[in-house]
Design a protein around this nucleic acid. Structure first.
Lengths: 356, 356
DNA sequence: ATGAAAGCGCTAACAT
DNA sequence: ATGTTAGCGCTTTCAT
């Protein structure tokens, strides 16, 4: 079988096969499929029939390279398994497809190298935008690296969007959308303090993660605003998982740390901590108060329902793609800061009976 | 500026720009970048320098069309927001990148049309495999539609993988990987029954969803195996969300349904149900026992820790990718059934004090 | 070891 | 309204 009629076993039909089958030229097929062009009705029908017969689907890569094609959008996160990331991904995904974009999702497991690789891949795919989400380590190296990526992307007609990450130097072609970690944590901690607590344990995330740091700053600031000086021994670090919360809490209990409330950097962390508390026979909030952060759907099913800070993750995802795609009249360098609000449920109360 | 030196403002450099910059031919650049070909060291260095200078990244689409290129893999699910799906996605994603594949993820929000559209897109992308996950409605139309897709994909050299979905007619070029919903539910329900419960409320999912049906079948079968005839009034239907569980449970309570245990079709559902139970002042498991399904990480943080069925979702995702990519010596039509096991925690006990 | 040329599957002028 | 001819950015013969 010659390499002309592509109707070979592989079954991968080309536009020329369809053309031959319909007795027209390839361009005509292209035009019929494209839709935007006048074609006689009879030809159109014949072509469509051929398409159906051959079960033809145009190669998207070829289209893309030839100028047409569905634009692509990349979403890079640390771990799709975290509820808050999943919700953002959902928002991104929905908005992207609503806008007719294909959407690549990649979890990097928090590995910076892997992340870099993936971004490079996206650049190779000529993605319309790359959305990077999740706290980072805010070092000079980080800023430099990100700036380079932003420039590369920009010069290729693409755009970098940072979500929940530290902004870069002004002038860098980047869009950053942050949610106010410090503000949320401040408000939450203020609420806890207002109940009368004076020793509140902070269960942090990775020490150098900006999201974790923001929340810690809020915790600190709230204390200082009341003229309080939080005991450094009351700050423990792990990551954002449920297991980390569980482990940290056990550890705190084992060390005999004294506190009447605990503020977790994440609902997941709070969830694990809660179990550790229960395991130790402590009642929440009677014996110790507990607060989380993120307001994942689950938070209200904890016992007691968790007081936490609501972050509009899904909306955030949607916003990210909208601004990334320039659906919003944007300045070259955009910086949005989304507000959050505390959701008061039952896990925080005044320090009561069995204070430790 | 003529359309020859692509070094225009757009910045999108082509291989020819690099070639020019390095004073060699495009083929040479290609060879250097490809690696698999002998090139003089001096040339190689010059080319690499040009690449660096221009910040050049080869267009993946062009590569793909020309025969090289990273293969792509598509993962289609209903909702990335569901923990079990997220874990599968994680597995898929990890294994795919481990195997050097790009991975497209798409949530269809349970919309069959949208799902179809997306599959078509993936065919256009010439994806190496399409993994479809999540229960479906098992009708003749479903089987027919899926078979058509499987054939299309196969004839394009791609492959369809069904995960947690009903198998198709033998001979269809499809791989299906199921986890044993019925078996798991049977074992779980047997456990509940063994505690002495006789009226156990079943909180289902979408009535026509095969996953939900499988779990219901297990529930039914476990009863029958004991010579019990479960009261049909004890089966309520909603979906797999936390809210559904909450609503259904309230409803059951409001109607004054009598039961001493409840078996939810999902941990999420169980979670919502638990809250409804608490809100009604009922204690678990003292007043009523509760069991879930999926064993999401959260399950152990519920109060009491939830007895449930473990499903190896992440492993499932990895397996799907592996078999899809034929890393497993596979028969043309493969059908795997993964086992599950019940995880006994504290939410199920013998019917006790305040039976309703 | 390197260049020239052909081709991948498609679209977009440019002709009729 | 339709066919012809160039590309798009890359790889891969086929020469040299």
């Amino acid at each position: 079988m010659t390499r002309k009629s592509t109707t070979d076993a592989g079954g991968r039909h080309t536009i020329r096969d369809v053309a031959a089958h319909a007795g027209v030229s390839a361009s005509t097929v292209s035009r019929v499929l494209g839709g935007e062009y006048p074609v006689s009705t009879t030809t159109r029908t014949r072509v469509m029939r051929a398409v159906r017969d051959l079960d033809y689907v145009a190669d998207a890569r070829a289209k893309a390279i030839a100028g047409a094609g569905t634009p692509t959008l990349a979403f890079v996160l640390d771990d799709i398994t975290g509820p808050s990331f999943a919700h953002m991904a959902h928002g991104v995904e929905r908005e992207a497809t609503r806008l007719g974009h294909l959407c690549l999702v990649c979890s990097t497991d928090g590995d910076a190298e892997h992340q870099l690789e993936f971004i490079e891949m996206m650049r190779a795919q000529r993605a319309a935008a790359v959305i990077l989400v999740g706290g980072a380590t805010d070092t000079a190296e980080y800023r430099e690296r990100m700036a380079r990526i932003a420039d590369s992307l920009a010069s290729a007609g693409s755009r970098l969007v940072l979500c929940g990450r530290p902004p870069l130097a002004p002038g860098t072609p980047v869009t950053v959308i942050e949610y106010d970690n410090e503000g949320g944590a401040y408000a939450l901690c203020a609420h806890v303090l207002a109940q009368g607590h004076r020793r509140v344990l902070f269960l942090g995330g990775l020490a150098d993660n900006t999201t974790a740091q923001g929340r810690e700053s809020g915790y600190l600031a709230a204390h200082r605003a009341r003229g309080l000086d939080p005991d450094p021994a009351l700050r423990l670090y792990g990551d954002f998982t449920r297991d980390s919360g569980h482990r940290l809490m056990r550890q705190a209990l084992a060390q005999g740390l004294e506190f009447t409330a605990v503020m977790a950097s994440t609902d997941m962390v709070a969830s694990g901590a809660l179990t550790a508390l229960h395991e130790a026979g402590l009642r929440v909030p009677a014996d110790v108060s507990l607060a989380g952060y993120d307001d994942i759907p689950f938070a209200r099913d904890l016992h007691p329902p968790l007081t936490t800070v609501h972050v509009p993750y899904e909306e955030l995802g949607r916003l990210a793609v909208r601004t990334a795609l320039g659906r919003t009249p944007d300045a070259p360098n955009e910086h949005l800061l989304l507000g959050t609000h505390v959701v008061v449920r039952d896990s925080v109360a005044a320090p009561g009976g069995g204070a430790r």
